[in-house]
């Protein structure tokens, strides 16, 4: 089984606990993030590196997109984290608190050097950049375009809110502007846009409301704080049966138009234009990856 290509949910697994590293494989998250940063005490950074290396290099779950979150860009742990993380061959390295494109270029060069030494194809390791401050949000477009390795930006709401002097709320108006900055940067760069966590994992109704907004805005996925959020978030970022039916009708109408040499194709009174076609194809690709629809023939 290989990874579906979907990035609807990202679950962190603390790098210092073998039990947690093992357990995280068995949930339904699309992306599994092995963490060396916040969940690991300073005295255990070395131990976490050894554990995460073993877990990712030799026992990685084949059906998930695998990431390693390294320590901060100016921390004393980063260099050794990168030496390990690149050699573990995850799909991506997740960088915390990115604020400048130059930081991405610096890490890109370091990763290239390690890949070359280790005999790994240069460019293979992707980067996810966490945007967790006002400065990072302002520079999101440059960060997203700083390297071809950058495959996603992910908003970190707690630190962002603190940097703004704002108060975190369930409605999320204090992060609305940052969400749009991150989203716009991702769309311009053609990469994945990952929304912030919804912190109260016991508030299912609140999470649903939050998902309705972020899915509607255009995000591709969300970091989850607890395994019980996974199924809800996966469902929210998957096409609905109605969306799949509509997409199929659009494509069928286009095919029929082509067969009949009709210049203009109309579905439900609306002319099918290029953006509609693109949206229909995206919906079907997502539905196929999520196992919700199978291509005939």
């Amino acid at each position: 089984m290989t990874h579906s290509g979907l990035k609807r949910t990202s679950l962190y697994a603390g790098g210092s606990s073998p039990g947690k590293l093992l357990e995280a494989r068995f949930y339904h998250e699309d992306c599994l993030v092995y963490d060396l940063e916040d969940s690991v005490a300073p005295a255990e950074k070395d131990a976490a590196r050894f554990l995460v290396y073993q877990a990712v290099r030799w026992h990685r779950p084949p059906d998930k997109y695998v990431l390693i979150r390294v320590n901060g860009l100016y921390s004393p742990y980063l260099e050794e984290d990168l030496e390990m993380a690149v050699r573990a061959r995850p799909d991506a390295i997740r960088l915390p608190k990115v604020e400048h494109a130059e930081e991405v270029r610096r890490i890109d060069a370091r990763i290239s050097a390690i890949e070359e030494t280790a005999g790994i194809a240069v460019g293979q390791t992707e980067l996810w950049c966490n945007i967790e401050s006002a400065l990072g949000a302002v520079n999101a477009k440059e960060i997203a375009a700083a390297s071809p390795r950058v495959a996603a930006l992910a908003l970190g709401a707690e630190d962002y809110t603190a940097s703004m002097g704002a108060l975190r709320s369930k409605a999320g108006w204090e992060i609305f502007y940052a969400r749009m900055q991150v989203l716009e940067a991702c769309r311009l760069a053609g990469i994945s846009a990952q929304d912030a966590v919804f912190s109260d994992f016991q508030d299912e109704a609140g999470l649903r409301e939050d998902l309705t907004m972020t899915r509607g805005l255009g995000f591709d996925g969300k970091t989850v704080i607890h395994p019980r959020q996974i199924d809800l978030v996966n469902a929210a970022f998957s096409p609905t049966p109605k969306e799949i039916r509509n997409a199929l009708r659009v494509l069928e109408a286009l095919e029929e138009g082509e067969r009949n040499h009709t210049g203009v194709v109309v579905v439900d009174g609306s002319m099918v234009d290029k953006p509609m076609e693109r949206r229909a194809r995206t919906v079907l690709a997502q539905a196929k990856a999520a196992g919700l629809w199978k291509e005939e023939g």
Binding site: P18, L22, A47, F50, L51, Y53, Q54, H59
Partner: peptide, 13 residues
Amino acid sequence: GALDCVIRARMQC
């Protein structure tokens, strides 16, 4: 009840 990879990681550390 550690797996072999955990024993290896702990020993290396």
